[in-house]
Amino acid sequence: MSALAALYAGYSSLILLAGVAALLALSVYVTLMAGQLSLGNAALAAIGGYTAAILTRDHHVPLWPAVLAAAAVATAAAVAIGIPALRLRGIYLALATLAFGEVVRAAALNLKITGGALGLINIPPLAGFWQVYGALAGAALFFYRLERSRVGRAFAAIREDEAAARAMGIKVTHYKVLAFAIAGGLAGVAGALAAHFAYVITPAQASFTEAVNILTFAVVGGTSTFVGPMAGGVLLTVLPEALRGLREERLLLDGAILMAVTIYCPNGISDPRLWRWRRARR
């Protein structure tokens, strides 16, 4: 047991980061479930982080109410972009969410309440292992139920063929906005929790690079089931660190992993077809 404790002590921030990455990956996943690509989730997470940090640091609100408030604000923002973006498809939607993300980042850079370029510091360290992984477990349960429900089926139908989904009586716009709302909530929670173990939050966290990172978690992990993005988030956070000895090569490896996985495992590493083949082999 003490070996585990020692392991945790040494790598605590990495483990927590991995948990947050998994949550963020899930937030991208839920919009992908409904066939929409969102590149604004880093910004949504930042909105959540800033909201929660301001509440806990300056107004002494306890952690969970602050996290809930953060989720609510992020959800509202997500719905605000989701609705106008409804008529957009594919890459155009992605670019619109990207534009939104940049607006948020620029706002964070400039507003006094967000501390400008330096961001907010001295955020009380209220989040630890149980908070982050508790939230993650809750999210996992949420997705488990969602995937087996009428709503989850509606998402999948929309993703596969929007016209056919409409022909089945599914109110497509309603569900697309719902997907965005859930994404906002998840991202908000992730951002809020991250702010509370990282001590700081900066505008850079709302950047395009971050958003793209989150996307790669989901895609590399595989998007056929919720386990994929979680695995992708954890893997792509932990692996580069584990290979930290090769510090200089880290970017190179990240890039090589991304390319290799996308080319050779187009459905991500959690692709059920991959695993079925391996089991048959034994």
């Binding site: 890459i91 895609v219 880290r250 970017l251 190179l252 890039g255 290799a260 996308t262 187009p266």
Partner: peptide, 23 residues
């Protein structure tokens, strides 16, 4: 593969290029 996959590989390629340039 779909357009999403090309987006991701281009990101991977970008990382490789940047890191090689650093070297």
């Amino acid at each position: 593969a779909g357009p999403l996959a090309s987006l991701i590989t281009s990101i991977g390629a970008a990382l490789i290029l940047v890191s090689a340039a650093q070297r």
